[in-house]
Simulated assay, not measured.
Amino acid sequence: MKNPSTALLLTFLFFTICTSAPAQQIAFTWDDLPAHSALPQGETRIEIGHKLITAMKDAKMPPVYGFVNGIAIEREPASAPMLKDWRDAGFFLGNHTWSHMNLNTSSPADWEADLLKNEPVLQKYAANTDWHWLRYPFLAEGNTPEKRADTRKFLATHGYRIAAVTMSFGDYMWNEPYARCVAKNDTTSIAQLESSYLEAASTDADFRRAMSKALYGHDIPYVLLMHVGAFDARMLPLLLKLYRDKGFTFVTLQDAENDPFYASAIDPSLPDQPDNLESAIQARGLPLPPRPKPSLDVNALCR
């Protein structure tokens, strides 16, 4: 018979190990507010926003960040109330530049001016909140060391933190095909879009976790890139269930980026370090895990 004190010690050690192990965490972030991609027949940007907000509220998610392109309001004035709804729900807004300008194909001066042009929109809709978070359009951080350094210095001077991305399954690719399929009332193709979307999210999560474990032996908190598209709104309840079924919990962007991996994103005045897992793997000279291959060419549907 085991010594009761030994059994108690083993139980305590098991509990301590289990509870201290890093949990699988995701911070959801949303790009292209208030208007992303094609708008299906019979929907509005406001309705898409309501679907996203409702799904996240129903799932009791912590407050998320949405990154704004002010030019969308200029192009689609009717989309503007989506930003107010987002804030009224207790969610936050950040800067995605005015025109979604690609830093890799622009001069730092032009790109920085585009970012500053977006600030009045954020001051209007997100006053008295922490809106000094940047999501680089196209995740383009500068195609030369000099451009990256110049831009990081600018961001640090203006009090910005970078919303890095460590998980993304290319959700934006499903939104235009979905609008086409809605127009054709092609329910068979929409079902294909649904299954392939969830499959892509699942296999991508496994891919990101494999990179994190190769680097650190455990999961870092992941920052997930999403877009405020109509198909994303349709699929969000199922997507949240998928992640929960895979063992993930949801955290804020701030909590995720408290992890040391994101130190140079939180403070752009620090030396530039990889802020995505692929770059970190390459910097360490480690082999990249097999990248998931799509099972369906979504762009071929409903043509």
Results as ranks from 00 to 15, higher is better:
Glu257Met: 15
Thr29Leu: 06
Glu257Pro: 01
Val251Glu: 02
Lys117Cys: 07
Asp297Pro: 01
Leu236Cys: 03
Leu93Cys: 05
Gly285Thr: 07
Leu83Tyr: 08
Ser269Trp: 06
Ala55His: 11
Pro260Val: 06
Ala149Asn: 01
Val228Ser: 11
Met1Ala: 14
Ile73Pro: 01
Pro290Ala: 02
Lys117Ala: 11
Gly94Ile: 01
His132Lys: 15
Asp32Pro: 00
Cys302Gly: 07
Gln123Val: 05
Phe248Trp: 09
His227Tyr: 05
Tyr222Arg: 03
Ser195Lys: 15
Asp150Glu: 13
Glu278Gln: 12
Met211Ala: 08
Pro271Thr: 06
Ala78Thr: 13
Met173Lys: 14
Glu119Gly: 03
Asp114Thr: 02
Leu242Pro: 05
Met61Lys: 10
Leu270Phe: 00
Ala205Tyr: 09
Tyr262Trp: 02
Thr44Tyr: 01
Val182Lys: 03
Ser106Trp: 03
Pro268Arg: 04
Lys213His: 14
Asn128Lys: 15
Gly159Val: 03
Val251Arg: 05
Thr249Trp: 01
Arg180Tyr: 05
Arg152Tyr: 03
Phe154Ser: 00
Asp272Trp: 09
Leu224Tyr: 15
Gly285Val: 08
Tyr178Trp: 04
Leu83Asp: 06
Gln24Arg: 15
Arg208Val: 14
Asp272Arg: 15
Val298Met: 11
Glu119Val: 12
Ile220Glu: 11
Glu119Ile: 14
Val228Asn: 14
Met235Leu: 05
Leu215Lys: 08
Asp219Ser: 06
Arg45Gly: 00
Asn175Arg: 07
Lys246Glu: 10
Glu257Tyr: 03
Thr16Tyr: 10
Arg291Asp: 08
Cys302Met: 04
Tyr125His: 15
Thr166Ala: 06
Met56Leu: 10
Met173Gly: 08
Met82Tyr: 09
Ser37Asn: 12
Asp275Ala: 14
Gly159Leu: 01
Leu277Asp: 05
Ile281Asn: 08
Leu52Arg: 02
Ala163Trp: 04
Pro145Val: 01
Ile71Cys: 11
Trp98Glu: 10
Ala7Leu: 15
Arg148Lys: 11
Asp110Tyr: 06
Pro40Asn: 06
Lys241Ala: 13
Leu52Ile: 14
His50Gly: 05
Ala263Ile: 10
Ile48Asp: 03
Trp30Tyr: 15
Val121Thr: 14
Ala265Glu: 00
Ala164Asp: 00
Phe138Leu: 10
Pro108Ala: 02
Val251Lys: 01
Pro145Asp: 07
Gly70Asn: 09
Met173Ile: 13
Pro4Lys: 10
Tyr136Ser: 10
Gly42Trp: 02
Ala7Thr: 12
Leu240Ser: 04
Arg161Pro: 02
Pro77His: 01
Gln254His: 10
Ala156Met: 09
Ala80Glu: 14
Asp186Ile: 08
His100Lys: 02
Leu52Trp: 06
Gly42His: 04
Gln192His: 12
Ala126Gly: 06
Asn299Phe: 07
